[in-house]
Simulated assay, not measured.
Amino acid sequence: MNYLAHLLLSPPDTAYQVGNLLPDLVHLPEQERFTGRYREGIEMHRRIDAFTDAHPVTRRSRERLWPTYRRFSGIIIDIVYDHCLIRRWDAYHADPVPDFLASVRNGLPALQGDLPEKTYKHIHSITQWAGDYATLDGVSAAMARVGSRLRRPVDFSGLRSELERHHQGFLEDFDHFFPELLAMTGNASMEKPTCLTALAST
């Protein structure tokens, strides 16, 4: 799962939410210095990633991109699932995505002294652009940036058409997987099956 899902799968506590992002942003030795609610968020992040990586449905999603993008299918599906989460957002949270991200951003200044400056700026930035995954163009643009930063740049210009071709399949995979992830994290009460039933046809 990517940034937006990790934030959603946290209680409304900014230190916990930040902790749930840290394993993707700082190296393991640096993670170990965080305690309290940060530590709880870090541990939840690890549980989420382990559950997600081992789940047969997320494997099926990754296989939809084989063989062309097999090497990068994991990171692509992480971002695609944030896209799917935005498409299904009303089933899981009462506030619109921009308002939810703004609430996280508003809590960050109180934590600035606890975080490396680069990490703080990165998290602040995430709360500004994570909503861009609402569109497949946004997903494609994110992967284009990833490809351009690699030691050997990778051309993802053909990814958009692949995402479109499998879009319905990704949504169906997500609708199967995400309620199970919610249950694993103890957030099953967030589920609204009637909403999901209606959304599944879109």
Rank of each mutant, 00 (worst) to 15 (best):
I123L: 06
T135N: 13
H167G: 13
T127Q: 04
W129A: 04
P153V: 00
A134M: 10
A142D: 07
S148D: 12
G131Y: 00
Y133C: 10
R145S: 13
G158Q: 13
G113T: 08
L159S: 07
H124K: 08
R151C: 14
W129I: 11
S161D: 14
S140F: 01
E162N: 04
T119F: 04
I123D: 03
E117T: 10
G158T: 12
Q128C: 00
P116C: 02
R165G: 03
G147M: 05
A134T: 04
M143H: 01
L111D: 06
R149W: 10
R165V: 09
Y120W: 02
L108C: 06
K118G: 03
V139I: 03
G107R: 05
T127S: 11
Y133E: 13
L159P: 03
A144E: 12
G169T: 09
L115Q: 11
H166S: 07
L163V: 06
Q168K: 05
H122W: 00
T135Q: 14
S157E: 13
K118I: 09
E162H: 09
A134K: 05
R160T: 08
L115A: 07
H167F: 01
A141S: 13
P153F: 00
E164H: 10
R152G: 08
H167R: 15
L115S: 03
F156A: 09
Q128F: 00
M143S: 01
A142W: 03
Y133H: 09
A130F: 02
L150F: 07
H122Y: 04
G131C: 01
S148W: 07
Y120H: 08
E162K: 02
D132Y: 07
H122M: 12
V154G: 04
P116I: 06
V139F: 02
Q112M: 08
P153H: 01
H167C: 14
T127H: 01
A141N: 06
G113D: 13
A142K: 07
V154D: 09
E164T: 14
D155C: 10
V139K: 02
G113W: 03
G131Q: 06
L150Q: 14
Y133N: 07
S125N: 01
Q168R: 15
V154Y: 11
H122K: 09
T119P: 05
R149N: 12
S140M: 04
D114F: 08
L111F: 08
G138A: 11
V139A: 11
Q112F: 02
V154M: 04
S125M: 02
P109N: 15
T119Y: 02
D132K: 12
T119E: 05
V139H: 06
A134N: 07
L111R: 05
P109I: 15
M143I: 00
R165M: 10
P116A: 00
G113R: 10
L136V: 03
A141P: 00
K118Q: 03
G169R: 13
V139Y: 00
A144V: 08
S140T: 15
S161K: 14
L150I: 14
P153C: 06
G131T: 01
D132Q: 14
G107K: 09
G169V: 01
D132A: 13
D114Q: 09
L159V: 05
S125L: 04
